[in-house]
Nucleic acid binder design. Structure first.
Length: 220
DNA sequence: CTCCCGATAT
DNA sequence: ATATCAGGAG
């Protein structure tokens, strides 16, 4: 048999995954360094296809030079590009950071808007970034943040069969209690980095293996 | 769908 | 050499 009968229901399996993640990562939090909502927004834009560790190496110098939306909005774009260069996609990222900050200054009085609908109008901000900012800067959990780790692990765990992040998020919102939505993402990302990474998933050391249809474990 | 893109692990 | 990293826009 592939999976213990106790967890044949996808819902029960999801809740057991959640329980175990909480036990494994009781102190999991956002691993991006920031002090203001604008800084979190910028750090999250920079985190596209880049490790948080790398983002945290560039943001100290970036925020020392340009601490708020107003300073980034009218900064020399070449200087901005140079400061974020090592995170990759630096041309687009610098342009989006400046574009988002200009809009924040000109249309939102210098403050990051709190409504999802408004967040999503900022250049470089789509569902994933908006979820992160809404949850961590404003404590307003609107959905499940689906990044590359959440996408990979939830597919491996059989909690969704979709590849589209929006559809994955909709599946997860049905399986996970709302209060745990953001925490589930954070913990899944931690587990993705520590155990179930894309290059070499460590199934023998994985506490979720007996729940996971994809784990290469010995079948009884 | 393609493009953006440097740093790092394998 | 190649795959992957808290994605988003055209």
């Amino acid at each position: 048999m592939s999976i213990d009968r106790k967890w044949t229901s996808k819902k029960k399996r999801a809740l057991e995954v959640l329980l175990r993640l909480k036990r494994l990562y009781p102190n999991a939090t956002c691993s991006l360094d920031y002090t203001t909502p604008v800084q979190l927004l910028v750090a999250t834009i920079l985190s596209a296809q880049c490790t948080d560790e790398r983002v945290n190496k560039v943001t100290p110098a970036l925020f020392a030079k340009f601490p708020d939306a107003r300073s980034m909005a009218y900064a020399d774009i070449l200087e901005l590009e140079e400061l974020v260069r090592s995170t990759g996609f630096y041309h687009n990222k610098a342009k989006n950071i400046q574009g988002a900050c200009r809009k924040i200054v000109e249309e939102f009085d210098g403050e990051v808007p709190q409504l999802m609908e408004q967040l999503l109008t900022l250049p470089g901000v789509a569902r994933k970034t908006a979820n992160v900012v809404s949850a961590h800067a404003f404590g307003n959990i609107q959905g499940v943040t689906v990044d590359t780790h959440v996408k990979r692990l939830t597919n491996l765990l059989g909690l969704t069969s979709h590849q589209d992040p929006i559809k994955i998020e909709q599946d997860l919102m049905k399986l996970i209690p709302k209060v745990d939505w953001e925490n589930f993402s954070i913990m899944t990302i931690f587990h993705g980095r520590a155990i179930c990474n894309a290059r070499k998933p460590n199934c023998p050391e994985c506490e979720l293996a007996e729940l996971c249809p994809s784990a290469n474990r010995v079948v009884k």
